[in-house]
Structures are given as C-alpha cells and as structure tokens.
Design a protein around this nucleic acid. Structure first.
Lengths: 351, 351
DNA sequence: TTTGTTTTTATTAACGATGTAAACATGGAT
DNA sequence: ATCCATGTTTACATCGTTAATAAAAACAAA
C-alpha cells in the first residue's frame, strides 16, 4: 500500500508537509503543493482511513441503521443517503436492525468504538431518549423520529404526514367527490409499542382532521390494521365481505395500499370505479401495478440532503448546540402523484 | 471512550494480557480471563476498530458495491448480505455505483486504503480483469460475474440462469402447453457493453436451448429489449399493435416482466388468458401485482452465505489460492414460483 | 537448592496520519 | 552584521491496538 511517507519521499518533502498538502491547509508554498499533489496522483495515494480516524477521530464514514432493506421505503432512503454522502467523498455503513429493538440498541452502543463519525437512524421503536442513553454525545440524526415530544433528543428529518395527508384527503373529497372515505391503518392496540404509536397516531389523526375540514363527519372512518402488505390483503377481503361500505380507502402507507389493491382484485372489486385507493411514501412498486397507485411521493433526496446538512452542523459545533438547543424536526417536501387508483382517466397519462 | 488500558487497569493485568483475552487466545489462565471479561463487560468495552485495523490490517468491515439500491434485486441481495455478515459480527459498507463503470472502478481503487477487509461486488459492466487491474491482491468476491471466461479473475456467486430458465420454459411448454413462446430481453446491440452482453446472452440462450429441447422450433422467438420496467411497457404496446403473436412471454427478469404486464394491462390484454408472462429474480414486487408474477426466485440468502464463505476462505489462505487456482463460479439454488401470470387458477391459492 | 521447562505476564516497537512545537529560511529594519 | 518578523518546513509524540520478544513466575525433576 502507498503511504504518505511514499508521497513525501517522491516529492522530496517531509511527511508533515505532505500531510498538510493533502489536508488542504494553505500554509504550504504553492510550488511545494504542486509537487506533492503530482506525486500523490501519480502514486494513486489514498489516505489510510484507519490511521486518520485513529489519530484525528474523523473518518468520513457514517452509519445508517434501518429496520430492513427489503422494504422499499428504507431501500430508497438508503440509496439517496448513500449517493448524497458519496458525492461528498463520504462512505456509508448500512446496518439492518431487522425491526429488533434490542439489537438496534446494541448496534448503537457499539458505534462509539467504531470508526464511524455519526449515525443516521430509522429507529425501530426506540425513542430519542432510549438511543441517547447508549449513544451519549455521539452525533445522531434521526429519520422520522416517532418519539413523544418529551423523549425527543436528536434533530430529525420527517416525512410530511400532515401536509401530505391533507393534500390526499382533499384530492379524494374535493377533486373526486368521494363521500365515504375510510382511513386504513389506525392503531392496533399495543401499549408496549409506544413509538410506532406516535407516528401512526399522528398520520391517522391528520387524515381525520383533514376529512373534517372537508365537511366530512361520518363515524366509522377508522379501519384498524398494521401497515403492511398482508394486512392490506386481509382488510380488503374483510371489507368486501361487508359489502364495501366505502368509496375510498386512504391507506397510511404504500405497502399497505398495494396489499389492499391486491386484496380487492382478488375479490373482484374494481379500483377506482367501485372504490378509490391511496397510499403514502411514493415507493417504486406503486407505479408497477394496474391500476397504478395514487400516493404521496416523499422527497427522499431532500430527506437525505437535509439529514447530511444537519449532521455536518452537529459535527462542526459539537459542544455548542448539543446541550443548549432543542432538537429540531425538519419536515421535507412531497408531491401528490395522481394516478389511476383514484383517477378514472386514460392510463397512459399519469404514469 | 473506554480503551483496552482501562479494562486492563480495572482487572489488574497488563494491556497485552487484556488484548490476548479479548482476541480469544487461550494462552491466558482461566482465572485471569474471567477477570478481564468481567471488567470489559462492566465497562462496555468495544475494541476501537480504527486502531485494530491500523495495526493488524483486520477490521471485520466489508464493502459491497451495487449499481443501485432502488432496484429490488440489489436491495434484497444487500439485505441478505448485511444480515449474514452481522450475524458474524462483521459490518458492511454499501456503496452505490449508479451503473457508472468508471465511478465503480474509482470506488474499487480507493478500497486499498480503506479499512475494509474485502469487497463484494455486483459489477456494472467491469470484467474481473478490469477490477483486478486496480484491486490487485485485494480480496474480492463477485456476484454474477459476467466476464467472459478469459477475463474472470475472482470467485463468483451466480444466479442459476440455466437451470432456472430451463425450469421456466418447461413450466410454460410442458405444464401449460404454450405453443408460441417469446423470449423477451435479448441483446440490444452495444459492442461497448461487453460484460452485460455475456449474462444476457447466456440467459437468453439457455431459454432458447430449453425451448428447443421441448421440441419447439419456430423462428422469431427472440424479442430484443433492455431489462427494465419501461422497456417492458414499450414492448407490450408494440406486441399488442402487432396483434400479439405470442401466447407466452418469457422475460429475462422481473423488472422487465412487471413492465410487460403493466403494458399489457394498458392495452387491455388479459394475463394469463391471452398471454402468459414470466419473470426471473423473485423480487417482492412480483407478488404485489394482479395477476401475481410467475418467476424464478433466486436464493438470495444462499448467495449471501456462499459469498461470505468464499470471502472467508480467500482471507484465510490469502497467498496460497489466489495465484494458483482458477476462479470458481458457484451457482446457487432457485425455486419456481408458479403464480397467476401463468396459472389460471383461483387467485387465493398461489400467493 | 539448582536447573530446566512450561505457563503466564510485561515491555516495547510498530501500524499511518495528524498536530504541536520547534527549527529553519527569507527579507527588512535597525 | 544583528535582530526580529514572517513564512515554510520538519521532528516528534500521539491515537488504541497488536505481535514479537523479553521477563517473570510456576512447577517438576534432579
């Protein structure tokens, strides 16, 4: 392997000088700088990250913990974050927690000793406080921190549940005049599950609130189930047996919505003619089905960018902000994708 | 941060003894071992990976380069590999090459200086020889090495194109008696694209060969297009306009097949009644559509396991095998998922 | 007790980059 | 010529771990 010493020798300077050049300190004569740069390029020099990290505590490697990469929501977020970091010559370690709360905490704990500069996390049900208790002053940015306000400890980048759900409900009620809207994915009672509780609770409530603002006040708008594909299939069958008492099903995420559409298809119920279906997230699969899924496309790229910016800030003035200021929650943008599961239009139009 | 020195002091031994214990060398008295272990646990000691890596050249961190994580094939493979490694207390850095050949080579080159112990790669069109030229003796395992035989340089874990395609064609021709089978996804002429050429070429040829073995010898079985969703949509429209001269479309991967199904739906052609459609890969989306997609489910977990085993071997006897033996190609298992896109059966049966 | 042998622990020098303090030039001003 | 100020460069200690070697302790046999 080619080390800084090799570069230094090749360009006739000391290791310290070479190091200064590589770090971009402008305390070196332009002439020397050029010599060193050339030698480095010629030798294909790349700084040894272990050594740098050991000495300076800075590795330019970050860690992302997600519950699962098979879930397209996390896969797309990971993809964007990796790209964003790579563009800044940073690397990303991706760890999969498999929705295991304790495993996740253990992963966070071992981070202190790893060479990673900071943690991005889509937590599986650990609150900011839980994570803080093992991460200490380690730099952390959360995605969709679902902690209750009192348990938030870190800056977080959030999906626009309120604005998104409002737009979606308006789309259904105002643009398409749906009269019997069901909100699919309200809370399954599980008191131990207090984090997930918060996000679900919020998103459902926003949907309900938007419904009321549209002058809608029927009871039984809430349909209780988990936020996954199989739950969607089951709910669809269940509702079909009841004679489908809704003309629109506003699902709390895409995975669930695709399950619902699948289930409806199995029961011979036509979307959107008999019932409209909507999702939330904007994962790719939603454009693969027939009909394609109307959904809220979350700005994944924006989430990744915002998160890296927050991380940068956190690392730069480490001591200053950490203790004093409240954790921030930054909500990213979204786009309402009007597709076939709500619009009876020509299929080619809205792909 | 808590260091080995802290552990040593807490347990009243020297740093080297503590190190020996942590590394599991059994040259330490059981009594001493116990003391050190307890202290380490009590202090939540985790070895500093930078230091270990710097000194010993072993970090237990590996790198995976994939073209893209939005592509479910790569996402699921990444997921499995991450899990497999994590179970062995190893970590995985995932880099996304964005299908950029040169970027990928640059990523490989900078690996020498990184703290990573080895590379797993789903290459974007770089041959084994290309990678070898920048990676040197760095340990590399390839997924689906598409190099021509003369350019293979590394052990590779491969998707079972031949067995899978044979099973699929038999499923179509023998089980379902389809008479006009189209092989969708044969080569788009692109001489610069010599790697991708090989895999595509092979998979198509295996399909064709299987067709012939089923006593099938019509001309015009090959339908030329790229292996992605949009190509599938386009091809479907094109074939529909020609009056759909096939009763089965054997697509070279799932992404393409899902596009074809989508396109057929847009044209009002019913699958599988008018034409059967099959995929290859076994990505999750294939069970989200209606009809669900008949496909070859590649054993992702097996791929990940095999790859880590090969990596382990490569690292253990680094000098011995590297030069002497030929690169191995290990082909993993698969499962033919008979689903609705070929079987007219009750939809509930084959989810 | 002495000697030899084995087991266990301690000392010390790396690994490669960084950052501080010190050394070395260079050029004016005294 | 001497001194100081400024601008560049270098020597060296350091980060936490490992591994080779040296030292010490334990034990057995003479």
């Amino acid at each position: 392997m080619v080390t800084l010493k090799d570069v230094a020798e090749a360009s006739g300077v000391s290791v310290s000088t070479a190091s200064a050049v590589m770090r971009g300190l402008d305390i070196v004569k332009p002439d020397t700088t050029r010599k060193v740069r050339n030698a480095a390029k010629k030798l294909h020099y790349h700084a040894n990250i272990s050594a740098r990290s050991l000495r300076s505590g800075r590795s330019n490697i970050f860690t992302l913990i997600v519950p699962d990469l098979e879930n397209q929501y996390y896969a797309e977020l990971s993809n964007c974050l990796s790209n964003e970091l790579l563009a800044q010559h940073k690397q990303l370690i991706i760890q999969v927690s498999q929705y295991d709360k304790d495993k996740e905490i253990e992963q966070v704990r071992s981070l202190n000793a790893s060479m990673s500069d900071g943690l991005f996390i889509c937590s599986t049900n650990n609150s900011g406080a839980d994570i803080k208790s093992v991460a200490g002053d380690y730099p952390v940015i959360m995605f969709d921190d679902m902690s209750a306000a009192t348990e938030a400890r870190y800056d977080s980048v959030e999906t626009p549940s309120q604005a998104g759900m409002t737009a979606m409900i308006r789309h259904l009620c105002l643009e398409h005049d749906r009269k019997r809207v069901g909100i699919v994915g309200t809370l399954v009672e599980d008191p131990s599950n207090r984090i997930s509780y918060t996000l679900r609770h919020n998103r459902c409530n926003f949907a309900h609130q938007a419904l009321m603002e549209c002058g809608y006040d029927r009871p039984n708008t809430f349909i209780t189930c988990d936020w996954d594909h199989n739950s969607g299939i089951a709910i669809a069958h269940h509702l079909a047996e009841e004679g489908m008492p809704y003309d629109a099903l506003c699902c709390m995420n895409d995975d669930l919505a695709l399950g619902v559409m699948r289930g409806l298809a199995e029961c011979g119920i036509v979307v959107p003619d008999q019932v409209a279906v909507t999702g939330y997230d904007g994962i790719t699969s939603g454009s693969y089905t027939s009909p394609t899924l109307t959904t809220i496309a979350v700005d994944f790229k924006g989430m990744a960018q915002t998160a890296t910016e927050l991380m940068q800030q956190k690392i730069l003035h480490k001591d200053a902000s950490t203790r004093t200021s409240m954790p921030r929650r930054i909500i990213v943008g979204f786009q309402l994708l009007r597709r076939e599961s709500t619009c009876r239009s020509r299929p080619e139009a809205n792909r």
